[in-house]
Design a protein around this nucleic acid. Sequence first.
RNA 1: GGCCCCGUAGCUCAGUGGAUAGAGCGACGGACUUCGAAUCCGUGUGCGCAGGUUCGAUUCCUGCCGGGGCCGCCA
Length: 507
Amino acid sequence: MSLALERLAGELAGVVGAAVELERPSDPKHGDFATNVALRLAPERRTSPRELAEELRQAAEQINGVERAEVAGPGFLNLFLDAGWYGEALAEMLAAEGRYGAASSQHLERIQVELVSANPTGPLTVGSGRNAAYGDSLARLLTFGGNEVEREYYVNDHGTQIDLFRASVEARRHGEEPPEGGYLGDYVFEIAKSQGDPVPSMIKSIGQTLEHFRVQIDNWAYQSEMEKRLPALLEKLDTYTSEGALFVRSSALDDEKDRVLVRSPERGGNPTYEAADLAYLADKLERGFERAIYVLGADHHGVREWFRVAARLLGDDPGKVEVILYQLVHIVEGGRTKKMSKRRGDVVLLDELIELVGLDAARWYLVSRGPDQTIELDVELAAEHSQKNPVYYVQYAHARISSILAKAGGTIEADAEPPQELSEEEKGLLKRLVEFPNVVREATERRSPQAIPTYAIRLADDFHRFYHHRRVIGSRAQSFRLGICQATRAVIARCLDLIGVEAPETM
RNA sequence: GGCCCCGUAGCUCAGUGGAUAGAGCGACGGACUUCGAAUCCGUGUGCGCAGGUUCGAUUCCUGCCGGGGCCGCCA
């Protein structure tokens, strides 16, 4: 929470002897900030909520920055703050510069975020784009919070799907149809035009798409490398052979069944994906990550429990493993919905979406929906509406402020005296800015980066309203208002950065 | 059959154990001699259904209805 708000909450907590949370009521009549602490505490204090609130009210009115306090409803305490408090809040934001909103006291960790990890059997789809936009934004939030974060892409470069992909390309090179279960997409024809193993070049092209999408992968891990660690790993595990296949006794650790790690000779004798998962997790944990976050599509829902079991099989803490599932992206064509399939070739590529709606709009769009929500993407509609994407509304506010600050010239006084009486527009905007640290904290804790674009829209909204009603340059409160502009611009820029979107000076 | 996600405005979606549930799109009407009109101001309808927990539930729990997804020696 912002320091100015923390100070208020702290002083109230001192009075009541318990933690106090201050929230911003939706109705301004209910104060600038309010707390329900009396309601929560009344039962254990054996008193009525209103009585407790009244006690708190009298103490609150003695606190510096509180203009007046009211008890309302069943026992809410509503605080009305004076201009001095708003000045304090603004000074804090300006002093913190770009760090405003970054967490200061939480437990920091070394975190790995594994994201995308799509098979290199074709270009990235918008489904992978959703994974990338979500995972990267989460990584940015965690980094902003002070954690040490690494983004990793796990490449399935070995196995049935890869063999089918190579065979499909090879077939097209000879003008033949791909084999049963092979890859039918148009891109296979393109790849078939060039010589050599299509897998390495596909991996390279995926990397380029991600880089263009502003996702910086710190490390690429390869399934084939992980499988090399298997023999040593298998010796340490409780395994047995049945019908020629090697099983691990995972059911002993609450898994729903024992898992095959190495297939029987009749089935090729190759290690399964679960085996590679296990070796890969061992590798992650050995590298010292205190938390391994997997960002996976909802179709991987079945493996969620497996990763936790895997940690236990390795004798490590399953609490270090965090699996985040996001629902799939479906494509809508002519009013009909269908699931994407890379094998069938029913896909919308991430590169296509970017081309169609623009990079910023694509990132904004894909991160704006909560991970639990299925996205139904109508490409035609998306292209048609792209100019109306709220990202431009937010970027416009940033550009507009940049223009004002350029016109005003000079430096901003961090401690500009607030006017005697603040307008509703100034208060509204400042209150929104005061909320920012909480928004960041909750977005991070709840793994909900979509809260950032939502907040950014509200902030831009408050700014545009302020701009229309209150003149900045040439007003008596110019210095203070320039400070507000400066702080607003910094927070908008931060929001956009957290979701990988540009903050333009001009548009 | 077991498990996961969703059901909020005409549409696409936010949101929260609290006081009158929001935004964008769409529709209609206003506002540029003044810091950027990609803007602002105004006009409407809604938490799938039924119970439970709670001072208070759209939010948590259970059941039902409806939609999507996963349950293979596939990845």
